[in-house]
């Protein structure tokens, strides 16, 4: 690996910085909301849930070269009770799907899901009877990270995307067509018509 690292200035004054949030929602609680969402976004504890080869890249993301700890996500928890974000790393077989759903249900609110890699997001090359064609058929996915597998920096970009989503004020969630911050149940997700109507009415 070449040692040279090219430096790129990411933000100028015109583009919003990741920490920037525009006010919205309740008048009294906006500041508190901002504060709470900042705190939530900067301590996303992932769940140790590697399903396939993507998990190797997920491990590399936490290692010293990429160091996910810089984003507050180094504490991979082996129990869903202590995790905030579930990184579905790898192909999700139909046999594993109920297990994934149960683990998701056991996570405390607020919770988020990152679908890592082509297989978890859409099935990838495994368009067959054994693999779930997209983990969003089982759990609501917040951020999709394409790649096979996504490199550690691509996953870090996905985590940054999720942080951006969390830091957004709640008021603009519906108009942006994003998932709402309410307890999500299996019945809610099964009701696809409702979700599609909400998306169409954005």
């Amino acid at each position: 690996m070449p040692k040279r690292v090219e430096t790129i200035v990411m933000h100028d004054s015109a583009t919003p910085v990741i920490g920037d949030v525009e006010k919205g929602g309740s008048v009294i609680l906006t500041t508190v909301d901002t504060l709470v969402s900042q705190a939530r976004a900067n301590a996303l504890w992932p769940l140790t849930f590697g399903l396939a080869c993507c998990a190797i890249e997920m491990m590399a993301t936490v290692a010293s070269r990429f160091d996910l700890a810089r984003f507050g996500s180094e504490a991979f928890r082996a129990t869903p009770r202590q995790a905030d974000v579930m990184i579905i790393a790898g192909r999700l077989s139909k046999k594993m799907a109920p297990v994934l759903r149960q683990i998701y249900d056991q996570m405390p609110e607020p919770k988020w899901v990152i679908s890592m890699g082509a297989c978890a997001s859409s099935g990838g090359v495994y368009n067959n009877y054994a693999i779930v064609q997209g983990a969003d058929q089982v759990v609501p996915v917040d951020v999709y990270v394409p790649g096979c597998p996504p490199s550690p920096d691509a996953l870090i970009y996905g985590v940054m995307k999720l942080q951006q989503k969390i830091k957004r004020p709640k008021g603009s969630f519906r108009e942006l067509g994003l998932t709402e911050m309410k307890p999500r149940t299996l019945e809610d997700d099964a009701n696809m018509e409702d979700r599609l109507a909400r998306k169409a009415g954005k």
């Binding site: 090219e6 810089r70 920096d153």
Partner: peptide, 12 residues
């Protein structure tokens, strides 16, 4: 230092 400060600098 081995860590690449990713959003600010990128690995080649």
């Amino acid at each position: 230092k081995v860590t690449i400060q990713y959003p600010e600098e990128r690995r080649e």
